[in-house]
Every structure is written in C-alpha cells, then in structure tokens.
C-alpha cells in the first residue's frame, strides 16, 4: 500500500472491484439473509425461522441453540431439555467444521456495527485510541461463566450486546439502539476494533472453538507476498497473519491456525498477489504449498 492509499486499492486495480470485494460481499449477504430469515416471520408472516440467535427453530424441525448460552445454563444448575441439547450440538459441530469465529464475521449482527466503525476509523484517520490486551476477552468469558455459576442465573444475558441487538431487531427495539450506538462510538473513538477483537466474550468462546476448527484461511502462496501490508490493515485480528505469512523461515505452515481468525476472507479480497486461499487445517505442510493448494472459489 502506498502512503495515502487505501488498503485494497492495489487489489482493486489488479483484479477489479468485484473480485476485490468478493468475500466481503458474500459475508454481508450471509449476515443480512440470516437476519432476513428471522425477520420474515414477524414482518411478513413467513415463518421459516422462529426464535432468535440464542435459540431457534427452523421449518419446525431444526432446533439450533447457542452452545455458549447452553454452557452458562448448565453452570446455573439447570439441565436443559433435549431440543436445546441437540440444537447446541448441531451448532457446535457446524462451527467446528467451518471455523469458530465464522459466527462473528458471518452471522453476528454486531459485526456490521463494529466493521462500520473500523471502516470510518480508517477513513477519518483517527490515530490514538486505547488498546486493551487481546486476551481481555478470555477474562471476560471466564467472568460470564463465573457469574452464571455464582448467581444461578444467566446474568450476562442482561447486558450481552450480541443477543440484545438481535432480539431487539426481531422483537421490537426498546432502548437497544443506544447500545448499538455505544458500541459504535466505543470502537470508533475509544478503542479501535475494541469490542469484537478484544472484549466480547461470545467471540472469545468461538475463538476457543476456532482453535480446533477445520476450514481455515491459508497464506498458501506466501512466497508471492510483496509486503504491501494491506491484509494487516483490513484484518480485525492482524496478529494472526504473521505466523502463517512470514513463517517460512521458522518452518511454520502457511495455514492461519489462530482461533482468533474470523474466516472473514477479507485478506483474500485485498491481496493483489492472491496469496491467501481458503483451505483446511490438514493442508499445512511447509513445503511447496502452492503446488497442491486447495482453492475454494465462491
């Protein structure tokens, strides 16, 4: 990236605007269509999906339940009905396959807000913001579990922005927009990428799943990297890229193995050299990755 240039402009020049935004657009489409499925019921009487992101029933047969909530529930001492258990298991298996934090970048509504804040942050060139340690989220995750255990109630659900935002979209807004605004302003002025990448315990929970998940982004053609730094600039978790992209000397494989990677695919978009590809954790040999790279094109 030349000074003054926006990240991704080289890719746009090289591949064209659409190709340089492919994953971003797919992701937005996924987020919005999931939301649309939930809203079709209350808005148009089209009951394909009932419930919220916390727990839902699709087409009257498929139960889905957030395993993070189920975990808290079990800690409060309640043994859930079968529907919740099966639902949580399905969700768990799904994210173990496609990547834990796919929840964050492809499903969670708050991501729209924080991505917007990060984008504006970059456009306005805001420099100095507070930085939390990235592992603060695991502390908060621990706290939420502890609160459930000690209080015997789902205490975190009283304030959890993720579920509040989703629920308020589906069941009526209340004061939830204030919360959205607060997160937006927090990410914009107080701490860049503060909420999703540093504090959110839901993201932390799915990061833990992400350590084990199968589908991953790989810097498969890392030898082509020209150090433009565009991927670092757009990545919500830039610390996850270096070990994979620059790991050739340390004999580290090209697959991004950090659970924090959200599988958003933005790095694939903005790389003008097509270094990144969708791959799996099993494709992580250090030798000649490029020869047998698996590319999944959307």
């Amino acid at each position: 990236m030349q000074p003054g240039q926006r990240p991704g402009s080289e890719a746009i020049a090289g591949k064209g605007w659409w190709a340089a935004h492919r994953w971003l657009l797919l992701r937005r489409a996924a987020q919005l269509s999931i939301l649309a499925l939930f809203l079709a019921g209350p808005w148009f009487g089209l009951w394909i999906v009932k419930g919220t992101i916390a727990s839902s029933l699709t087409l009257d047969v498929l139960p889905l339940t957030d395993p993070y909530l189920l975990l808290q529930m079990v800690l409060t001492g309640h043994s859930p009905e079968q529907a919740a258990l099966i639902g949580a298991l399905i969700v768990l298996v799904f994210y173990l396959l496609v990547g834990g934090r796919v929840y964050c970048s492809w499903v969670c509504p708050v991501n729209l807000v924080t991505d917007a804040a990060a984008w504006l942050h970059q456009r306005l060139g805001i420099r100095h913001t507070a930085q939390f340690r990235r592992n603060t989220r695991y502390w908060i995750l621990g706290l939420t579990l502890l609160l459930a255990l000690v209080s015997g109630t789902l205490l975190w659900e009283l304030v959890n922005p993720v579920s509040i935002v989703y629920r308020s979209l589906i069941f009526g807004v209340g004061f939830a927009w204030l919360l959205v605004l607060a997160i937006f302003l927090f990410d914009l002025f107080v701490s860049r990428r503060g909420w999703c990448s540093h504090l959110c315990p839901v993201g932390a929970f799915y990061s833990l799943l992400g350590h084990l998940s199968v589908l991953r982004v790989s810097a498969a053609a890392r030898e082509r990297c020209n150090d433009c730094m565009d991927c670092y600039a757009v990545c919500p978790e830039p610390q996850v890229i270096r070990p994979a992209l620059k790991g050739a000397e340390q004999n580290t494989g090209p697959v991004i193995m950090s659970g924090n990677c959200t599988n958003c695919g933005r790095c694939i978009d903005v790389c003008s050299k097509d270094v990144f590809h969708v791959s799996t954790r099993f494709n992580n040999s250090t030798t000649s990755q490029f020869a047998h790279k698996t590319e999944v094109t959307p």
């Binding site: 009932k50 419930g51 339940t65 529930m73 919740a84 789902l154 659900e157 629920r167 069941f171």
Partner: peptide, 20 residues
Amino acid sequence: ALAEEDFLGACVRCGLCVRD
C-alpha cells in the same frame, strides 16, 4: 415457568414461547 431464580438461569430469551 420455573421459580423465578431458576427461570432466569434456564430461559435463553429466545422468544419461541412468544411465537407459539
């Protein structure tokens, strides 16, 4: 509904009861 304390530990606020 379970006793209030237990209810607040068990209900995930999904609204499926509301819908049905």
